[in-house]
Design a protein around this nucleic acid. Sequence first.
DNA 1: AAACAACCCAACCGCACCGCT
DNA 2: AAGCGGTGCGGTTGGGTTGTT
Length: 254
Amino acid sequence: MGRQPCCDKLGVKKGPWTAEEDKKLINFLLTNGQCCWRAVPKLAGLLRCGKSCRLRWTNYLRPDLKRGLLTESEEQLVIDLHARLGNRWSKIAAMLPGRTDNEIKNHWNTHIKKKLAKMGIDPITHEPLHKQANTHEISSLTDDQPESSNHNLQVPETDGHVNSNDNSSSPTENCSGDESRSLDIKMDDDPLMSCLLGDDAPLVDASWKFPAAGDDYNDVGLSFWDYQDFGVQEFGFSCLDNMVMNTLEMANEH
DNA sequence: AAACAACCCAACCGCACCGCT
DNA sequence: AAGCGGTGCGGTTGGGTTGTT
């Protein structure tokens, strides 16, 4: 049937966002909240498509974003979640307050993948590379893994018994596009998976309060302004990061 | 100091999904 | 039930930055 493009390409600006554009988008969203994204650029006075605005906001401008490299514990959590969820970056990101799917995806591709490969672990299947040929040996997999990776795969369990390598039920499915499907089947038996893949509350509450029109920004616990490189401080926002840090610490303790 | 390579990340693209009519 | 619009998601890319020779 042919979809209508998210925006007419004519007169729509692409490429890196300028400080001025960021400013307009932030001002609009903080004043009016998130309405339909298609209307945002028009109402905010931006020559961007709504999709671009949404991405800019969710990946860079959102007040609850935590900038900087992933911590060791965050990285381990990502590895563990990836072993269960595959490339479902948004689901993984939902478990890491202040982190975006894009950020995690990038970190995975640039750092973790190499790290795992170096340790002799297939970043897709999370199995030792030398064991790929014989998938029936998976039951002994954790014993054979380097200490660090073994630790990685034992991060947070909600029920205390779920092994991230329970892929053994169908190891051959656990690659490329079929991975998520096989996981879908298994999630019925895994409370954590049910939680992750459903719309239920995450392990930690990553939500943040969006200011209603007229709210004082200082009440929202904005944390990201410090990290921006376009000098948003001029807006006069305070830099409170406690909310995000607290939720992250809660996640790490689990 | 310059040239080149490798790395990193913001942003784009296109498809899938969901809800409304 | 089907069509359509809006949004979300994952894969990919382009350009800037950093490191190496």
